[in-house]
Design a protein around this nucleic acid. Structure first.
Lengths: 333, 333
DNA sequence: ATGAAAGCGCTAACAG
DNA sequence: CTGTTAGCGCTTTCAT
């Protein structure tokens, strides 16, 4: 069997039509506000709709050939506040444009990611927004598949929306300089786990130091290390470089930890982080950081996606780099 | 028009059938592994599927009467780390059981929430998991609508999964006592914005103080106040009650702010928060807190939901209270 | 072991 | 202004 039990059957157009004493077509017309209808019919149909508790069946609509108005959101995990923010803004932006979101937490696992792709294709998704890690997936190459990448995926032909990482690196470093730091170090992820554009933050940092005639000092750290490991790594940096009076740390998580450590150890090192998610700003308001324009990025991503959906693929391969800002720590009065 | 342009048309069962030289029925059988097929046919169909780049159309399947395997997740916002965690765990748990998630950020707006309900009904969602705020929505009363609430909604007939708020209040207060505090205050939300079960945290707190023969001191705070307002409110509490040496604050966000303020002001007040989301533990590892078992709650919610989906509504109205734990601050070596 | 045909709920030509 | 009819892609009797 498998057929929905009759008792659970939801009312259909026909049910409404019968109840209103008109044809299904007429009901459909009322629902879609198409053609010309008499006021009497309209109100009768509306009454019948309310009576029967009718809800249009989107599957049938989609099947007929319309858009599904379904967008896949593929991100590592909403557990990460940055992605939590991004997914939130994307969903909001898509909602007002009449799209709904299928949430796909890929855990940065390429097998999982591939499964989601199939799933989305099978569900007739009109498009996808991807902020997941894997660059090597062929499936993304499907022609005519509306797709936008957030800060990842360097494949030509896929438009990318990201924050201006280079400018972010510059801003962070300049802020540290302006605030008086002269021995400014930079902590970033180890190469293997670097986001494709992460090195640009570093480039911004190095540029500014060069302009000031200072020596860059870059320290790679394993970002996925457990707490103890991170503390140890930071400790060795701090102890091995007692001259440091400023640190640009390319990730708020690590930056907040470093901030706490410096406090506890009585080190006067000025620290600037990166990301500026809502959570960081609330939980660690005393951490100066570079804020990514998450809302803007979401809006731009949706703009580009909808343009693709409407058949305009001229955006293919374009990269949109959105402006970041420096947010100083909040002072407690 | 409206019809998908021919060039964008995705391959259908018929396309595969033609390419494999069999009937659509046979292809369907291969896909669903039903009936008896010859090995030759099977492999030929598989080849054709690969060749044509075929993906089964879920809309058609759903339309035919099967389940949509779609679950609606209605939560205020994934921007909040607690919901970010919860939504992540729910999605993961549902995924392994073959369900997909439609993400609905309701912003605690009841109009928005109602719209999502319609949307989910229209999209043939098999069920919903709701962690949003509004208790007064009639639509949730739909009979035979598989629905589980997380920590909200007190309507009889809807099963609720929550953490053991009463026990959490007890644990927090007992921890403070054990760590030496004797003048223990409690900060909670003002009544109007209280989550339905939030008062239970307070009850736990009051109980323990009573057992110890101490006087409870409860301070209500506007949780949605902006930074400055919250600082002011906390300040007036701290200044007005200099005898305090312990504070149980029913929300990590406020707790972390209070922690920072006490530090800056040199006040030796032991603070315990509530929630223990992944983000808090990473950003504010030095905040002792009561950890809600988010993963467990997600699993339980999905358990209950799937039971409802399979027609077993005996869980209606049941409340599942899951155990919380006290997590001390991480010490920096 | 395979195919033909009917129908899920909806929409859009085409009539009237 | 409204109804009739066909068909979207798929699954399943019912034949063969």
């Amino acid at each position: 069997m498998a057929r929905r039990k009759a008792t659970l059957r939801r009312p259909t157009l026909d049910d409404v039509a019968r109840s209103a004493g008109v044809s299904a077509t007429t009901v459909s017309r009322v629902l879609n506000n198409r053609g010309s209808l008499s006021d009497k019919t309209i109100s009768r149909v509306h009454a019948a709709i309310r009576e029967t508790g009718y809800h249009p069946n989107e599957s049938a609509r989609t099947l007929w050939g319309k858009q599904s108005r379904l967008i896949g959101l593929i991100f590592p995990t909403t557990q990460n506040p940055f992605y939590g923010d991004m997914v939130y803004e994307l969903e909001r932006e898509l909602y007002v444009r009449g799209y709904k979101c299928l949430l796909c937490n890929s855990s940065n696992d390429s097998a999982q990611e591939r499964q989601f792709l199939d799933l989305l294709l099978a569900n007739q998704a009109d498009g996808m927004i991807v902020g997941s890690h894997n660059t090597d997936i062929q499936t993304y190459q499907q022609p005519n598949l509306p797709l936008v990448a957030i800060d990842r995926i360097t494949t030509r032909s896929i438009p990318v929306v990201s924050s201006d990482n280079h400018q972010g690196g510059r801003l962070a470093t300049e802020a540290l300089w302006k605030r008086g730091a002269r021995r400014i170090g930079h902590i970033n992820s180890i190469e293997s786990q670097a986001a494709p554009y992460s090195y640009e933050r570093r480039r911004g940092y190095e540029e500014v130091l060069q302009e000031k005639g200072l020596e860059p000092k870059v320290f790679p750290i394993d970002w996925s290390a457990p707490y103890q490991g991170k503390v140890a790594a930071l400790d060795s940096i701090l102890e091995g470089n007692p001259e440091l009076d400023g640190l640009f740390i390319a990730d708020d998580m690590t930056a907040s930890l470093a901030l706490a450590m410096c406090r506890q150890r009585g080190l006067a090192i000025d620290i600037v982080g990166y990301d500026g998610s809502d959570a960081v700003r609330k939980f660690v308001p005393d951490l100066p950081t570079i804020v990514q324009p998450i809302k803007l990025m979401a809006r731009k991503a949706v703009d580009v996606l909808t343009r693709e959906i409407s058949g305009d693929f001229s955006v293919a391969g374009t990269r949109y780099s959105l402006p970041v800002t420096f947010l100083p720590e909040r002072t407690m009065p």
